[in-house]
Design a protein around this nucleic acid. Structure first.
Length: 399
DNA sequence: AAATCGGGGCC
DNA sequence: GGCCCAGATTT
């Protein structure tokens, strides 16, 4: 037996040459990363519901739901959604209203419409069998470079690269990349690196392992380098700067907004309105709401300031008497932080006529509100109304 | 290149 | 109470 070598921890840098001369990665570094990452993933992976099989439809649904949304938030939605729409044909055949209702609470509702449109494209333009070429997949509504790579690699095991929140962070650390993570220069660099990393065989497992490392070990704060299978291949770890990478530009403080809405009771029913076409909460339901001050994020402003009673009259055609604030809801939407005061109110007239920005205004029984689709803030008010249904009678008798 | 689009989980 | 999240699309 030859001499025993003591185990050597070899610290390696991903670049065989400097970035100035060649952008290529060291082939040996690439081979080690692939091997160690996949070996680690085989025993460390989480049993996520969309990993149960390689059905491209399930991959598409999960990826659409996971856009800027955490895994824990998605899991229950994914399981309900797949139960309700088990196949791409089932989803294509559904009404958009059903799809939005299934998406209610997840946010970024454009994704639900895009997913629905993508399912219809698969059925109508591809005969119901999922497209397998990069161009055809990329052409589906809501499918960008990342989701296309995810479908190609997870479902069809094609060597397509992926770059998303987890892998951006992992790559930035491996490369000890100090520039702003979101800059287009950085993004181009990360995609180029991911392209060289994805193996010709086993791309699906590699890409899953790549993301899983970012999710479980290479976390935003306090990365677990001590148990990381590729710590020895990590440029940031080599330099001891894993806590300084990646860097992002700080966000400006949120814009403060104040709104008011009416919980209008009449004959045991409550007044709700449906928003019209527009960017935010398109076709969603809410209680008639006016904008009071700050930047208006949702197009609820009138040309001149109006009080809530006048606002509700213009929005719905109903004359109302406005009572006290009974519930205050604080919520955030993109860059805005909103304080919404909900006032008890009584309807003094029956006839409704939807005003600017609305497509419908209806009186509805509180117990039927659950069938409508609301945003999160409105949904909190719905639950208040349902719980305090008896008080609605009081508002009316006070009038 | 920058803005838009929601909501919840977690430190 | 701020940060972050399996991005895509429009401006």
């Amino acid at each position: 037996m030859g001499r025993t070598r003591k185990p050597k921890i070899e610290k390696t840098s991903p670049l065989v040459t400097g970035p100035q001369t060649s952008p290529d990665l060291d082939p040996e570094w690439v081979a080690r990363v692939r091997e160690r990452l996949v070996a680690w993933y085989e025993h460390a992976q989480r049993p996520l519901p969309w990993r149960a099989d390689q059905d491209p439809y399930r991959v598409l649904v999960s990826e659409m739901m996971l856009v800027q949304t955490t895994v824990t938030a998605v899991i229950p939605y994914f399981e309900r959604f797949l139960n309700q729409f088990p196949t791409v044909q089932a989803l294509a055949a559904a009404d958009e209203t059903e799809v939005l209702k299934a998406w209610e609470g997840l946010g970024y509702y454009r994704r639900a419409r895009q997913l629905h449109a993508a399912a219809r494209a698969v059925v109508n333009e591809h005969g119901g069998s999922f497209p397998t070429t990069p161009d055809a997949i990329r052409a589906l509504p809501g499918v960008g470079r990342y989701i296309a790579g995810a479908i190609l690699s997870f479902a069809f095991d094609q060597p397509a690269p992926i770059v998303e929140a987890n892998t951006q962070r992992v790559l930035a650390r491996w490369l000890a990349w100090r520039e702003d993570l979101k800059s287009s220069r950085t993004q181009a660099k990360l995609w180029e690196t991911a392209e060289q990393l994805v193996p010709p065989e086993g791309a699906g497992v590699f890409n899953q392992a790549f993301m899983e490392l970012g999710a479980l070990l290479c976390t935003p704060r306090s990365p677990s380098c001590l148990v990381c299978p590729v710590a020895a291949e990590c440029g940031a770890r080599l330099l001891g700067i894993q806590d300084l990478v990646p860097t992002t530009t700080p966000k400006p403080p949120p814009l403060e907004v104040t709104e008011a809405c009416g919980l209008v009771a009449r004959g045991g029913r409550v007044l709700i309105v449906q928003r019209g076409p527009g960017r935010l909460w398109e076709h969603f339901w809410e209680f008639p709401t006016i904008h009071l001050n700050g930047v208006d994020p949702a197009g609820r402003s009138f040309a001149e300031p109006v009080d809530l009673a006048e606002g509700i009259r213009r929005l719905t055609g109903a004359r109302v008497r406005v009572g006290p604030v009974v519930q205050t809801v604080r919520y955030s939407v993109t860059k805005h932080r909103v304080k919404l005061d909900a006032c008890a109110a009584t309807g003094l007239s029956e006839e409704l006529k939807p005003g600017p920005g609305l497509v419908r205004a209806v009186w509805e029984a509180p117990e039927k509100l659950a069938a409508y689709t609301f945003g999160a803030a409105s949904r909190r008010l719905v639950s208040w109304v349902t719980k305090h249904e008896a008080e609605f009678a009081n508002f009316e008798s006070d009038a």
